[in-house]
Amino acid sequence: MNRISVIIPAKNEEEGLALILPRIREKLPDAEIIVVNDGSSDNTIKVCNQYATRVVTHPYSMGNGAAVKSGARAASGEILLFMDADGQHQPEDIRRLLERLDENYDMVVGARDSDSQSSIGRSYANKIYNRLASWMVGTRIDDLTSGFRAVRADKFRKFLHLLPNGFSYPTTITMSFFRAGHPVAYVPIVTGQREGKSHIRIVHDGVRFLLIIFKIGTLYAPLKLFFPVSLGFFLTGLFYYLYTFIQYQRFTNMSAFLFITSVLVFLIGLVSEQITALNFKDSEK
């Protein structure tokens, strides 16, 4: 049986940890539980010591993604199970993720329903992210930002260098897995109310999530971004040419500029597509 490492990033989450750690130990008595203390100033370490939990401590707050990477590097299990420390993820759902992982998937994600979102605004934002990311990778993504997931350690560590230090690590690892051809499954879950105060800033981190989507899209599917831009320049140039031809019976410099730009953008996307093929070399090993 594969050894399981449960990795829980935590920053001032003593209340949530006191609730979930005994429940995790009850469900997975033989699992390695790692809490990454991301510069906490509360009793996080004290709570962890009560439940025979391994603690990896950052000297200062480095971010949720950095904590995830530290936990992945320290883990000894073949299966990595990531959970939030705020009590929203239910340990009772762990078995469902692990059972689905045994069906030849490389990653299984707990997909939240609309009632599990903390606000209406965040619910709509996540729907937009999910649809945009699905278009990028060509596969339906049910929950792009869920931090509750089980994944094979050897596959996950191949993408550590891509993961940001902030809150958008689920976005990056999800899109990376899809584009690299690793099978991903979703298991419906219902999350509870978090314990303590959220560290996510809606506007700031929302913009960062969006940038991460385009970053990974450019990294793995550049033509998905470059081709629409190229097509936009081409159609603009075409319509402008038709207008100037009908009105003045001539081909203008602006039309030529738009056509040339369209070709250049397309060629850059084409070259980028060939370059990104090199990223799949290490993913196939």
Rank of each mutant, 00 (worst) to 15 (best):
N2S: 10
R3Y: 06
I7F: 06
I8S: 04
A10Y: 01
K11L: 07
N12M: 08
N12V: 06
E14W: 10
E15M: 14
L17Y: 09
L19K: 15
I24L: 13
I24F: 09
I24R: 03
E26N: 15
K27D: 14
K27L: 15
L28K: 10
D30G: 03
D30P: 08
E32G: 11
E32L: 11
I33E: 06
I34W: 10
V35N: 06
V35S: 04
V36L: 03
V36M: 01
V36K: 04
V36S: 07
D38M: 00
D38S: 02
S40T: 04
D42M: 02
D42P: 05
D42F: 03
K46L: 13
V47I: 14
A52N: 15
T53D: 13
R54H: 15
V55I: 10
H58M: 08
H58I: 00
Y60M: 01
S61D: 00
V68E: 01
S70E: 11
S70T: 03
A72Q: 09
R73T: 05
A74I: 00
L80G: 12
F82C: 04
D84V: 04
D93M: 08
L97Q: 07
L98D: 08
R100D: 09
D102C: 09
E103N: 06
E103P: 05
N104H: 14
Y105C: 10
Y105S: 04
Y105K: 12
D106R: 02
V108W: 04
V109P: 11
D115F: 12
S116G: 15
I120V: 11
I120K: 12
Y124N: 11
Y124M: 14
K127Q: 13
N130K: 07
R131S: 10
L132Y: 03
L132T: 11
I141H: 07
I141D: 03
I141M: 08
L144M: 08
T145L: 04
S146C: 01
S146H: 06
F148Y: 12
R149W: 00
R149M: 11
V151A: 07
A153G: 14
D154M: 07
F156H: 05
F159G: 08
L160I: 10
L162D: 12
Y169M: 06
T172N: 04
T172G: 05
I173N: 01
M175K: 03
S176N: 02
F178I: 03
G181R: 01
H182G: 00
V187D: 06
P188N: 09
I189A: 05
T191F: 01
Q193S: 08
R194D: 00
G196N: 06
G196R: 10
I200V: 10
D205C: 03
V207C: 02
R208V: 01
I212F: 00
K215T: 06
K215M: 04
L219Q: 10
Y220K: 03
P222H: 02
L223V: 05
L225V: 07
G232M: 14
F234D: 02
T236L: 15
Y240N: 15
Y241F: 13
L242R: 11
T244K: 09
F245T: 06
M254I: 14
S255V: 00
L258Y: 07
F259H: 08
F259N: 07
I260T: 12
T261A: 15
I268T: 13
G269R: 08
G269D: 00
L270W: 15
E273T: 14
E273V: 00
E273I: 00
T276H: 06
A277W: 02
L278E: 05
N279S: 05
N279E: 07
N279H: 09
F280D: 06
D282P: 12
D282W: 07
S283M: 10
E284Y: 00
